[in-house]
C-alpha cells in the first residue's frame, strides 16, 4: 500500500514542507503524481497496442490466405533501406533514453542535444520512408485504380523480382497477382499509421526542445521527458515488428 502511505505522509507533512510548483493540487505528494502519470502513460500505450493489434490481425489473416502474393510483393521493398531505417530508429530510441538520463541527472545541454539528435534521426527515418513511398507510387504499386500487377505476372520485367541467388521469381497467376494489392494496402496502412505516430512524436519533440532549453526538465521534474520517452520507445517497438513482417517474407 505504498500509495496510501504516501498520502498519509503528504497530509501530515503538508504544513511544514514546501510543495514544488509542479505538484498539482489534487495530489498529496510528487511521488503520487509521478506514479499516477507514469501509470496513465503506460495505459495509453496499451490502447495503442490494441489499436495496432487490430491491424496486425488483418495482416496475418491475409498473409496466410495469399502467401504467394505477399511473398512476391514484399520483394518490391528494399531490405537495405528498411534495415537502415530500423537501425536509425533503434539509434533514436537510444538517444531518447540518453535524454531521459540527462534530464534525471540535470544535464541541460546534454538533454537538449539528445532531444535534437532524436528529432533529426526521426527526420531521416521519415525521409527514407518518403523515398520508399515515392518509389512505390512511381511503379504504380499504390493501391487504387492505377495499380499495376505487371511486376508479378511477368517478374522477368522487374529487376527487383529476384530471389537471393539473383534468379527471377516464378510468375504469379493473375488472380493471385491481383492480391498483391492487398499487401500494399496493408503496407501503406501499417507503415502510414506508424509514420503518423512518429510525426506526432516529432511535433512533441519540437515543443520539448524549446522547453528543455528554458530548463524546464532539468530542475528536478524530469517526468515529462520520461513519459515522452515511453511513447517514443513504443513507436520503435512497433517498427521492430513491422520490419520483419513486411520486408522479410521469403527472402531466401
Amino acid at each position: 500500500m505504498s500509495d496510501s502511505t504516501a498520502i498519509a505522509h503528504g497530509a501530515a507533512a503538508g504544513t511544514h514542507h514546501e510543495h514544488p510548483p509542479y505538484l498539482r493540487h489534487h495530489f498529496e505528494s510528487v511521488d503520487q503524481q509521478t506514479d499516477a502519470s507514469n501509470f496513465a502513460m503506460w495505459l495509453f500505450l496499451l490502447t495503442e497496442v490494441m489499436f495496432f493489434g487490430g491491424l496486425f490481425t488483418v495482416y496475418m489473416i491475409y498473409r496466410n490466405w495469399y502467401y504467394p502474393a505477399f511473398s512476391a510483393a514484399s520483394h518490391q521493398l528494399d531490405v537495405m533501406l528498411g534495415g537502415i531505417n530500423t537501425v536509425i530508429l533503434i539509434t533514436s530510441s537510444f538517444t531518447m533514453a540518453l535524454a531521459v538520463w540527462c534530464a534525471e541527472t540535470r544535464k541541460k545541454s546534454g538533454l537538449v542535444a539528445m532531444l535534437v539528435v532524436t528529432f533529426l534521426l526521426g527526420v531521416v527515418f521519415l525521409g527514407i520512408k518518403g523515398h520508399e513511398y515515392k518509389e512505390k507510387w512511381d511503379k504504380h504499386h499504390f493501391p487504387g485504380a492505377s495499380y499495376s500487377v505487371q511486376a508479378f505476372v511477368n517478374p522477368a520485367s522487374d529487376p527487383l523480382q529476384v530471389n537471393a541467388q539473383g534468379k527471377p521469381l516464378a510468375p504469379l497467376a493473375p488472380d493471385m497477382a491481383a492480391r498483391t494489392e492487398m499487401y500494399f494496402c496493408l503496407y501503406f496502412a501499417m507503415t502510414g499509421m506508424h509514420a503518423l505516430h512518429m510525426l506526432i512524436g516529432m511535433g512533441i519533440l519540437i515543443f520539448m526542445i524549446f522547453r528543455a532549453r528554458a530548463g524546464a526538465y532539468t530542475e528536478g521534474h524530469s517526468a515529462y521527458v520520461n513519459y515522452f520517452g515511453l511513447y517514443w520507445h513504443f513507436v520503435d517497438i512497433v517498427w521492430l515488428f513491422l520490419f520483419p513482417l513486411l520486408y522479410l517474407i521469403n527472402r531466401h
Binding site: 500509495d3 502511505t5 503520487q32 499516477a36 501509470f39
Partner: peptide, 9 residues
C-alpha cells in the same frame, strides 16, 4: 489510474 493511485488512507 485513479482507483490504483488515489485511494485515501
Amino acid at each position: 489510474v485513479t482507483i490504483h493511485k488515489m485511494r485515501a488512507p
